[in-house]
Amino acid sequence: TSIVNVSSSLNVRSSASTSSKVIGSLSGNTKVTIVGEEGAFYKIEYKGSHGYVAKEYI
């Protein structure tokens, strides 16, 4: 489990790309479970499925 480190919110994306669809967002200090990594993104558990967040904010 890791913590989201942002002051406002962090986009959760459908794939490991800044141009991919935003499927949701997480607020600062939210706990997330990392299940993998791809480039500059972590794959996380998100709403019963998976999403991707930028590593620099975790």
Rank of each mutant, 00 (worst) to 15 (best):
S14A: 15
V22T: 06
T1D: 11
S19Y: 09
I23D: 01
A54T: 06
G48H: 06
V12L: 03
K31A: 11
I3A: 09
T18D: 12
L26T: 03
S17M: 07
V12I: 09
V6G: 10
S19D: 14
V4T: 09
T33D: 05
T18I: 13
I23V: 06
K21I: 10
S9F: 13
S9Y: 11
I44N: 00
K47G: 11
K31L: 13
A40D: 14
N29I: 09
V35I: 14
G51I: 02
S2Q: 12
K47R: 10
G51W: 03
T33E: 07
Y57L: 10
V35Q: 04
L10G: 06
G24Q: 02
I44Y: 00
V6P: 09
I3D: 06
G48Q: 06
E37S: 08
N29Q: 10
Y57K: 08
S17R: 06
A16V: 04
N29W: 14
E56I: 14
E37R: 05
N11A: 15
K47L: 12
S19C: 14
G24Y: 06
V53W: 01
K47T: 04
V35C: 07
G36V: 03
T33W: 10
A54P: 15
I58D: 03
H50P: 05
G36F: 03
S25W: 15
E45R: 08
E38K: 06
N5W: 08
S19H: 12
A54S: 09
R13I: 05
S17F: 05
K55Q: 05
A40I: 09
Y52K: 00
G24F: 10
A40G: 12
G51Q: 01
F41E: 01
G36Q: 04
S17V: 05
V22L: 07
Y52D: 00
S27Y: 10
E38R: 05
G51M: 02
G48R: 04
T1N: 11
Y57W: 09
K55G: 01
E56A: 12
S25E: 10
G36N: 04
G36R: 03
S25V: 15
G51L: 02
Y52V: 00
I58Y: 06
S19I: 08
Y46V: 02
S14M: 13
E45F: 10
V35D: 02
S19W: 07
F41I: 01
F41Y: 08
E37I: 08
S27H: 11
G48S: 07
Y42T: 01
K47D: 09
K21G: 07
S19P: 05
I58C: 06
V22K: 05
Y42N: 01
L10A: 13
S17L: 06
E56G: 07
K43M: 10
V53P: 00
Y42H: 02
G39V: 02
I34M: 03
T30V: 11
S49V: 10
A40S: 10
G39A: 05
S15A: 13
T18C: 15
S2M: 15
S25F: 15
A16S: 07
G28V: 14
V22F: 06
S7V: 12
T18N: 14
Y42E: 00
I34V: 09
S15T: 09
T1E: 11
S20N: 02
I3E: 07
V32Q: 01
S2P: 09
S49I: 12
Y42S: 02
A40C: 15
S17W: 04
S15W: 07
L26P: 00
S8L: 11
G36C: 07
I3W: 11
L10F: 10
R13D: 00
F41N: 01
N11D: 15
E56W: 09
G39C: 06
Y46H: 03
V6K: 10
G36W: 04
T33H: 09
K31D: 06
G28E: 10
T1L: 10
K21W: 09
E38S: 07
I23W: 02
E56Y: 09
Y42Q: 01
S2W: 13
G51K: 01
E38T: 06
V32H: 02
E56V: 12
K21L: 11
V22R: 05
S49E: 08
H50G: 03
A16L: 03
E37L: 06
R13M: 15
S49R: 12
E56N: 08
S2L: 14
F41K: 00
G24W: 06
A40F: 07
K21S: 12
G39S: 04
I34D: 01
I34Q: 01
T30I: 09
Y46D: 00
V12P: 00
T18S: 13
Y57Q: 11
Y42V: 05
S20L: 03
S49A: 12
I34L: 04
K31W: 14
H50N: 05
G51E: 00
Y52G: 00
S49N: 08
A54K: 13
V53G: 01
S49H: 09
K55P: 00
K43W: 04
S8W: 13
H50L: 09
G36H: 04
N5G: 09
I34F: 03
I3N: 07
G24V: 04
I58W: 07
S20W: 04
V22A: 05
S2N: 11
K31N: 09
S20M: 02
L10V: 15
Y46P: 00
A16F: 03
N11E: 15
L26I: 14
S27Q: 13
K43C: 08
S9H: 12
V12D: 01
S14K: 13
S2D: 08
N5T: 14
H50A: 06
K43Q: 07
S49F: 09
K55R: 07
T1W: 05
V4H: 08
V4M: 09
T30W: 08
T1R: 11
S15M: 10
G36D: 06
Y57G: 12
K43V: 10
G48N: 08
E37H: 06
I34T: 02
E56Q: 11
S25R: 15
K21F: 09
V12R: 01
S27G: 09
E56S: 09
K43S: 03
I34R: 01
I3K: 08
A40K: 09
S17C: 09
E38D: 09
E38W: 07
S9L: 11
G24M: 06
K21Q: 11
G24E: 02
S49D: 07
V4Y: 05
S7H: 12
G24L: 06
E37W: 08
S27L: 14
